[in-house]
Design a protein around this nucleic acid. Structure first.
Lengths: 310, 310
DNA sequence: TTAATAGTGTCTTTAAGACAATATGTT
DNA sequence: AACATATTGTCTTAAAGACACTATTAA
C-alpha cells in the first residue's frame, strides 16, 4: 500500500479525527475447512475384513467443526474462527485463526461472503467474514479432544430441492429452494440435520435471493448459513472442472482419487473417460505409482503449475 | 433470523459481555455503480450533424464517482459509499448509501470483496465492503454539481496484459499482470489513468494472488483496487452470457442494445447471429418496436422471468 | 484365475464459431 | 434508391456425453 501523504491542513484534520466517536462492529473471520478423507481411520483400515482387501476405502467430503467451550452457544458445534485484531487484514485474521486452530499453515483460503444480519450474534454487533479453506485431508490429524477444546471432522452431504415456484403480481417469479445439510461425526455417532430455505425473487428487472435457517440442527450462531454458502461456493468453483479441487489433494495423487474428489464436491458421478480427457492438460504424470492396493496400481500425477488459474 | 434463547447462566454472561473492551474497526460499504449510457447527452444527440442521423449513438460503459468534499483525499474522486450503522446489515448499508447518493432504489446490488489492508484509510482501521451495482443508465440523471457535493459519470475502459511469467525455486510459477484503467469524464474533459499490478503466485500445491496499486491516478483511498475488482467481477459474471447484463438495461430493449452491453463489459465484439441464438431463450418478444431511428426499427424485448438465475 | 481398479477408443449429440444472405423502416 | 440496422440460415469446428473395450496388478 502506497504511503498516504497528507497536507498540513489535512494532518490537522486527521489528528482530530476520532474513530471512536462512531459506533463500530466487531468483525470476525469464520472458516469452513473442507477435506476429502477416508471413511475409516488408518487403524480400522488396517484391520478391516480381509475378504475385502481389494476394495479402495470409501472417501467422503468432511468439514471441521469445533465445540464451543464458552458462552454463547456453549457446548454447541461451530466453525473455527475468531476476531480480527488491529493491524491485520481479514485475510490475515483467517490465516492466523486457521493455523491456531488446525495447525495448517498453507491452504487454499478464500473469502466468499459477509454475514452481517442484525441479531446473528447475541453478544451484539458482530460481522463475520466467511472463508473457505481447502486442505489435504491426510495432512492434518486432530489431537484427541480435551475438555477445553474439541474439534472434529464431520462428513457433509447436501441436497437441494425446489419446493415452490410462483408468479407474483408484477409478472415476476418467486422460487423457494430447500437445502438440507447432513453433518455426521462418526466417532461420536453424532448427526446434525440442518435445513435452510433459499428464496429467490425475480421482478421484471432485478433478481435477489436470501437464505433463512429453518433448523440450525445444533450449530451455533448463523453458522448453518455460512456452511451452506461455503459449500455452494465450492461447488460453483468446481463446476466445469475448475481447478480448486486440486487444493483438496496431496502433492501426488491418482486420477481416480482426483475424480472422486470432484464427484464428492459436485454431488454426482462423472464418466471416467471424459473426466480424464478434460483433466489431462491440468496434470503432469510422475514416475511413481501408488502402492499397497489390492489391484492394478495407478500412476501418480501432480498439478501442472503452467495450467493454474484462479 | 431465529431469536436466540439464552439460559439463565448465559444471560448473566451476556449481560457482562462488553464488546467495547476489544479494539474494533469501522466498516463501510463502497459501491461501484455501472451503467451503459450514450456517449452524448440528449441535447447533443438532438442537434448532432444531420448527415449522420441514421447512425445509432455510441454507447459506453460508465461508472459513477463522487468528488470528496472533505478530508481525507479532499477534492479527489472516490466511490460513493459510507459507514455501516448499528442495526443494519452490510447489504442494507450499501442499499441505503446507493439511494442517498444516487436516488436509485432498485438496482442489482451484490457484494464482491472485502478490502481491509492495514493503512488503506489514513483515518485508521476501516474495513470496506465492495459492492457492485448495475442500473439502467437512462433512469438516473445527475443533478448539476454543487460545491458541497459533486458526482459524475466516467467512461471506464480496461486493458490487462501479462508482463511477466517466471518459474520460482519450487517449480511454481509467478505471473504478473498489469491492469490499466482509463476513466474519462467528458463534460470536464478529465482523464484519470489508473494502473495496478496483479501478482499470481502458484506453488506446487496452492495458488494466491494480490493486487498492488501502481498509480492511483487521482482516485481516493484504495478505490482503484476496488474499481478494478468490481470490473473484473462484472466481466466474470457476464462470461458465458450470464444474465447480470440484463440489469444494465431498461425494462424493454432491443437485442442490439443488449448485445452492445455485453460487448462493452466483455471488451470484445460478438457475432450477432450467435449472440441471438444464445440469448433468445432468456428474453420475451413484445409487440412494440423502437421508434425514431433512421433505419429499420428493431423489436423490443424484455427479460424472461422464467429463465432468471443468479 | 479373479476381483477390482486403470486406462483408451470411438461414436453420437450438442454447442460454439464463422460467415453469408435476406429483410425492412427512414429519409 | 440508399443507408443502416434487423434478422435468419447453414456450414464448419470443437466440446461434451455415452458406452464399450482392453490392461494390469495382488492375492
Amino acid at each position: 500500500m502506497a504511503k498516504y501523504v497528507a497536507s498540513k491542513e489535512e494532518k490537522e484534520y486527521l489528528k482530530k479525527y476520532d474513530v471512536t466517536k462512531f459506533d463500530r462492529p466487531s468483525v470476525t473471520a469464520d472458516i469452513t475447512v473442507f477435506a476429502v478423507r477416508d471413511e475409516m481411520s488408518d487403524e480400522e483400515l488396517a484391520q478391516r475384513d480381509k475378504s475385502n482387501y481389494r476394495k479402495d476405502p470409501l472417501r467422503e467430503l468432511q468439514i471441521l467443526l469445533v465445540k464451543r467451550a464458552s458462552y454463547p452457544y456453549r457446548n454447541q458445534w461451530a466453525l473455527p474462527g475468531g476476531f480480527s485484531k488491529p493491524g491485520e487484514s481479514c485475510d490475515e485474521t483467517a490465516r492466523r485463526e486457521l493455523e491456531e486452530e488446525t495447525g495448517v499453515a498453507d491452504a487454499y483460503l478464500r473469502p466468499f461472503g459477509v454475514f452481517s444480519e442484525p441479531g446473528r450474534d447475541p453478544r451484539g454487533w458482530i460481522i463475520s467474514h466467511g472463508y473457505l479453506a481447502l486442505i489435504d485431508g491426510r495432512k492434518y490429524r486432530l489431537h484427541a479432544g480435551t475438555d477445553a477444546w474439541e474439534a472434529a471432522w464431520f462428513r457433509i452431504e447436501a441436497t437441494s430441492t425446489e419446493t415452490s415456484r410462483k408468479k407474483n403480481k408484477q409478472n415476476g417469479v418467486v422460487i423457494e429452494i430447500r437445502h438440507d445439510l447432513s453433518l455426521y461425526q462418526r466417532e461420536r455417532n453424532l448427526k446434525l440435520k440442518v435445513s435452510l430455505l433459499e428464496r429467490k425473487w425475480f421482478s421484471e428487472l432485478h433478481g435477489y435471493h436470501e437464505y433463512e435457517i429453518l433448523d440450525a440442527g445444533g450449530l451455533a450462531f448463523d453458522h448453518a448459513k455460512i456452511i451452506l454458502n461455503a459449500f455452494l461456493h465450492l461447488r460453483r468453483e468446481a463446476e466445469g472442472l475448475g481447478n480448486v479441487i486440486f487444493d483438496l489433494m496431496p502433492e501426488k495423487f491418482t486420477l481416480n482419487r482426483l475424480q472422486k474428489a470432484y464427484e464428492l464436491v459436485l454431488g454426482k458421478e462423472l464418466l471416467t473417460a471424459n473426466f480424464r480427457r478434460k483433466i489431462t492438460p491440468l496434470v503432469l504424470e510422475t514416475e511413481e505409482e501408488i502402492a499397497g492396493v489390492g489391484h492394478r496400481p495407478a500412476k501418480l500425477f501432480k498439478r501442472n503449475p503452467e495450467e493454474f488459474y484462479s
